[in-house]
């Protein structure tokens, strides 16, 4: 018992010393900061003191987040650019300057490698389907929830459910459902044997696009219905007094009023062309058919299986895509804001 308390005491002393050191450090720091503000030095008022304390508090709290941001956003992206111009020697482990060699290879592959061509096609089709089918459905579903029609709470939970289910668990269940249960069911109905939806070459792509839209409503529904809920009741009431119909209300009141939210979603979504993996990795791991590949899948798969010597090539490919994606995103933002309904 005594021994323990001794140890504790020692610990306490250590802690006190540490505390003292820290407070000394802050004191020195504050003296330094203080010294930099000569006009406030003499007779600092309570407000001046508070201002200075605020400044110190602000800087200290910002220290880690800003350092983290500088390392894992700015430095990572700069490094990505540098990496793209380098080559890596596997034997010596040395990075050397490679000029535009990586980019030449990227452009060559973009137009000649069948996987890249498939990726481009599939990514665009997937994005278009999301835009034409996914977004309008999400808007109509949100409208249903916003109008508090029967079972709207249940549907809201249901629509959000796929977003919280593990992608890998969901895709495993869906795989076996599509591969075993559905062909069996079709066999019972049509008395003819069918291929699995994912292993059949004709149905695989369609199934994957369907799956992406099918599980992809969650966040959109949340944001759209949230935005719809913040529409002022008086506007809706006034329109209803004028005898507006439900469809008319949707197009003339609801959509224009939540337009900023829709724009946000569409603008952020443009990057999806280059990052959407179409759940291929969950379904097939690194072994998906080349004809099913998308840009996102191609990049992740190759990074996951890559060695150091592949990183420069992958980085330069990322940069080429970023160079396409950034102006595209800004263009979409500009167009949507220019030609959309006015939000007043």
């Amino acid at each position: 018992m005594k021994k323990k308390s001794k140890v504790e005491k020692k610990e306490n002393e250590k802690f006190a010393a540490f505390k003292r050191a820290v407070s000394d450090f802050f004191y020195n720091l504050s003296v330094k900061v203080h010294g930099k503000m000569p006009h406030k030095q003499a007779g600092a008022t309570a407000i001046g003191l508070k201002k200075r304390n605020d400044m110190i508090f602000y800087c200290l709290m910002m220290l880690f987040p800003v350092a983290q941001f500088c390392t894992f956003y700015i430095a990572v992206n700069l490094n990505s650019v540098i990496l793209a111009f380098q080559s890596y020697d596997t034997l010596t482990g040395v990075h050397s300057w490679a000029g535009f060699d990586n980019f030449k290879l990227v452009f060559y592959n973009l137009f000649n490698d069948p996987t890249m061509l498939y990726s481009a096609k599939n990514s665009l089709i997937l994005y278009a389907c999301g835009l034409v089918v996914g977004v309008p459905l999400a808007l109509w579903f949100s409208y249903y929830i916003y109008k508090k029609k029967p079972l709207f709470r249940v549907f809201k939970v249901m629509l959000f459910l796929p977003s919280i289910i593990s992608a890998i668990a969901m895709s495993v269940m869906f795989t076996y459902f599509a591969e075993r249960a559905i062909p069996q069911l079709l066999k019972l109905i049509f008395n003819k044997s069918f291929e699995g939806l994912l292993s059949g070459s004709k149905t695989a792509f369609g199934t994957l696009v369907f799956y992406s839209i099918w599980i992809g409503f969650g966040t959109g529904i949340l944001m759209y219905s949230g935005a719809m809920n913040s529409i002022s009741d008086s506007v809706v009431e006034a329109a209803q007094i004028d005898g507006i119909g439900m469809i008319r209300e949707f197009f003339s009141i609801t959509i224009p009023l939540i337009y900023p939210t829709i724009v946000t979603f569409l603008v952020v979504g443009v990057a999806g062309i280059f990052t959407n993996q179409m759940n291929l990795f969950s379904f097939f791991g690194p072994n998906a058919e080349n004809s099913l590949s998308t840009f996102g899948y191609y990049l992740y798969k190759n990074t996951q299986t890559a060695s150091f010597s592949d990183y420069p090539y992958l980085s330069s490919m990322g940069i080429v895509m970023t160079i396409v994606a950034v102006p595209l995103t800004l263009l979409v933002k500009y167009l949507l804001e220019k030609f959309g309904p006015s939000t007043d």
Partner: peptide, 20 residues
């Protein structure tokens, strides 16, 4: 910075991040 980082689609920085 937060807004810009949200809009700017930076693709394929994973290899660089692994290196870092």
């Amino acid at each position: 910075v937060v807004i810009v980082a949200m809009i700017l689609p930076i693709v394929g920085s994973l290899p660089s991040e692994i290196q870092m």
